[in-house]
Each structure stands twice: as structure tokens, then as C-alpha cells.
Amino acid sequence: MPLEAWLALLSASILISLSPGAGAATAMTFGLNHGIRGAAPAVAGLIAGYGTQLLIVAVGLGGLIATSPLLFQTIKWIGAGYLIWLGINLWRARGHLRLDRDTSGRKRQHFISAYLINITNPKGMVFLVALVPQFMDPALPKAPQLLVIAATLLFVDWSVMTGYSGLASHLSRWMQNPTALRWQNRVSGSALIIAGLVLSTATL
């Protein structure tokens, strides 16, 4: 891939990752409640979900989702419902959900939860279907180009999501009392609910 094409890809990757969405809301929620280290499994889950979507696009299934309204709608509502359910749980937790820096027994749970959030976002996959071909040169071998594109997208997204969780973790130090914690849960829950509602409006 020519350097100028890769720089354009890098710029697009940064803008994509920085844009508010389900991934950012998830990373910040885990950062607030579990700290940057505790959020690491969730960030890994987000990246694994993103990577799975890239793999699906690479093998051509993304095109099927982009042209199948029924499949798109099914995945969309599963993802939107899951985000809204997570948000409602945070609202209901009120002041009883404590900041918990010990996540040794729940790393897998956090990973799976975040993975499901990204893998059930069909709009992201359709976006990748539109984005990836823009940086492909038909005259060059396909596999190396896909590898560079995937590595760039995943590394940038991991960096940004880690940054989001770190920022949220830093803010959590100022939110240790029950009232602040209750509002923290409400803000985090609202962010997830809004992300779910936005996802539910996605169209092909």
C-alpha cells in the first residue's frame, strides 16, 4: 500500500474511532467502574468484535448483510436491545454498584459483554463494507492489503478505546461518594441507552 494511501487510512481510522458510539460508551463505562486495568478485558472484547467484523467483511459476508434487510434488521435489534438492557441495569443499580478495581474473576465476562456489543452492530459492518474497498488496489495481492488495513483499524481503535477508558478511570477518582456514584451510573447507563437507540435507527 502506498504511503499516501496508508496515511489516508490512518486518518480515517482515527476519526472513526473517536466518533461517539457504542464502543466509546462501553469503554468509558468500564473505565469508570473498574479502572483502566479493569477495563482492559472489555477493550479487548471490543477489538475482538471489531476484528470479527473485519474478517466477515474480508470473506464477503458483510456484503450479504448490506443487501439483506431482514438480516440487517435482526442483528440491529439484537445489538440495540443488548445496549439498552445494559444501560437500564446501570440505572437500576443506583448507588449499589461500587467502583470495583478487582476484576480477576470477571475478565471473561467483561470481554464477552463488550464483544457482543461490537459484533451486534451491523451499521459498523456495513460501514466497513463501504470503507475497506476504498483502500484496496485491484492490481495488488488482496491478502497483504487486507492485513495492513485490519492492523491499522484495530490498533487505532484499541488505542482510542484504551484512552477513553483511561480518561473515565481518572474521572472516577472524583466520584467516590454514593451520590456521585449514583449519577455516574445514570450517566453511563444513559450513554449506553442512547447508543442503543441510535443503533436502532440505523438503515441500509
Rank of each mutant, 00 (worst) to 15 (best):
K142E: 13
S165N: 01
Q134N: 03
L146S: 05
G60E: 03
G21T: 03
A12V: 14
L7V: 09
V198D: 00
R94L: 05
P178D: 08
T103A: 08
L131F: 14
M125Q: 10
Y115N: 01
L61F: 15
V187C: 12
V126P: 02
M1F: 03
A44D: 03
S68L: 12
A24W: 06
F30G: 07
S159I: 07
F30D: 12
Q184W: 06
L18E: 09
T203M: 02
S200A: 15
K123I: 10
A5K: 05
A168H: 03
K123T: 03
R37M: 02
L54H: 01
F155S: 15
A25Q: 11
Q53F: 02
A191W: 02
I194P: 08
I75M: 13
A8I: 00
A80Q: 04
A22S: 14
R98H: 06
R101P: 00
R92A: 08
S13K: 09
G51Y: 02
V156T: 06
Q73P: 00
W77D: 10
M1C: 01
P133N: 04
L3R: 07
T162C: 10
M136P: 00
N121I: 05
A5F: 02
V126K: 11
A8D: 08
S159P: 01
G62S: 10
R92S: 02
V59C: 02
I149Q: 04
S68M: 09
V59H: 02
A195G: 00
N177L: 00
N89V: 05
P141W: 13
L9T: 08
V43D: 04
L32S: 11
L55I: 05
G21S: 07
R173S: 09
A40I: 11
I149H: 05
A143E: 10
L71C: 10
G189V: 10
Q53H: 04
R98D: 01
T179S: 12
G23E: 13
T103V: 15
A5P: 00
L86K: 08
F72W: 07
L131Q: 13
G189E: 10
M161G: 00
L181I: 13
S19Q: 06
S68F: 09
G124A: 13
D102C: 01
S200M: 13
S188K: 03
A168Q: 06
I193N: 03
A27V: 05
L204Y: 05
L171A: 15
A24F: 08
H34Q: 11
W85E: 03
R98Q: 13
L153E: 04
G166D: 01
L204K: 06
Q73V: 04
R186D: 00
I47E: 09
R186V: 06
A195C: 00
G166T: 08
G23S: 15
L154C: 09
T67N: 14
L3G: 00
I119L: 13
F111L: 10
G60T: 05
L10F: 10
M136W: 02
V129P: 03
Q109G: 07
I117A: 07
I84S: 05
M161A: 12
G166N: 07
P178T: 02
L171Y: 14
M125I: 15
V156G: 03
M136T: 14
H96K: 13
I75Q: 06
F72N: 06
V59S: 06
I16T: 12
G166F: 08
